[in-house]
């Protein structure tokens, strides 16, 4: 009973603090503190409910146990992280995104191809590409190469569509100005059109970060060596070791947010001139 009351108390206190915060003018501190307090409240309620209602740890382990397992199996988690994120997702991400940008620049010279490829590309971007995973695992074997291949295919089309769109985001006036400067195709590309396309390219890169991790993890469900986050999750679920599954999910969450954050930070430094970035704290 005590734990249940604790859950209610945690909810009330957390909500009180946040509604106080919300009434203040929005500043950097409140924008940061609000979500953090909300997250802590949820974790507290989770802990209290699991203990209070006597939920079996096989179904839902309390956060304290997850943290313990996380700390106890760091070497294991690190090995899985390297296998899935560094080898699988990052390799595929770099290959897929650069291939897409290069193809977009190449296509951009031929308006005929562009008119055809843009609808086909947007169509492909909406398809359940993840279904290619079993085929690519068959082609490239069980190790990280096949995971990287899945990631390449998954990030390719969103990236392509975004880059093609970005490259056409220059006004006739701007291009005329480049012409009056006697700039050739390559000069115009590097000095005007690629920089102008940057916000679109970064939009694609940000979408691709999540896709890359999803692709690498799901591809491991179709077969992998005895390491990797997707492998560990599917094996531990079978052994009902839910605390280890949650620990892997924590790793995935941290990796995903850090990956996204890194790209967002890069965007901020590279496209500081763009209206959407100006005036932001």
């Amino acid at each position: 009973m005590g734990w249940l009351l604790g859950a209610v108390a945690a909810w009330l206190i957390g909500w009180q603090i946040n509604s106080r915060l919300a009434r203040r003018p929005l500043s950097r501190a409140t924008a940061f503190a609000g979500p953090v307090i909300f997250g802590l409240t949820v974790i507290l309620i989770w802990e209290c409910l699991v203990r209070g209602l006597d939920i079996s740890p096989v179904l839902l382990p309390p956060p304290s146990q997850i943290i313990q397992t996380f700390g106890a199996s760091l070497p294991l988690l690190w090995r899985d992280f390297v296998q899935t994120v560094v080898k699988g997702a990052l390799t595929g991400y770099v290959l897929g995104c650069s291939a897409a940008v290069l193809l977009a620049v190449a296509i951009d010279r031929f308006p005929f191809l562009k008119r055809g490829l843009l609808p086909v590309g947007s169509f492909m971007a909406a398809l359940p590409i993840i279904g290619l995973a079993p085929i690519l695992v068959m082609w490239f074997g069980f190790d990280w190469q096949s995971k990287a291949a899945v990631v390449v295919v998954m990030v390719f089309f969103p990236m392509l569509v975004n880059t093609v769109e970005g490259l056409s985001d220059t006004g006739a006036m701007q291009r005329d100005l480049m012409r009056t400067y006697a700039a050739g195709y390559w000069k115009t590309l590097f000095k005007l059109r690629l920089p102008a396309a940057m916000p679109f390219i970064f939009n694609g890169l940000k979408i691709a970060t999540t896709l890359a991790l999803i692709g690498a993890i799901v591809a491991e469900f179709f077969g992998s060596p005895t390491k990797g986050m997707g492998f560990r999750i599917s094996i531990s679920v079978g052994q009902l070791a839910m605390d280890l599954v949650w620990a892997e999910i924590v790793v995935a969450a941290i990796a995903g947010s850090a990956f996204y954050g890194a790209i967002a930070l890069l965007e901020k430094t590279l496209t500081f001139w763009h209206p959407s970035q100006r005036g932001r704290m």
């Binding site: 599954v245 999910i249 990956f259």
Partner: peptide
């Protein structure tokens, strides 16, 4: 934030 997390990892669980 929930979308930067590859939540599909939870699917089996």
């Amino acid at each position: 934030t929930s979308q930067t997390v590859p939540i599909i990892a939870i699917a089996p669980m």
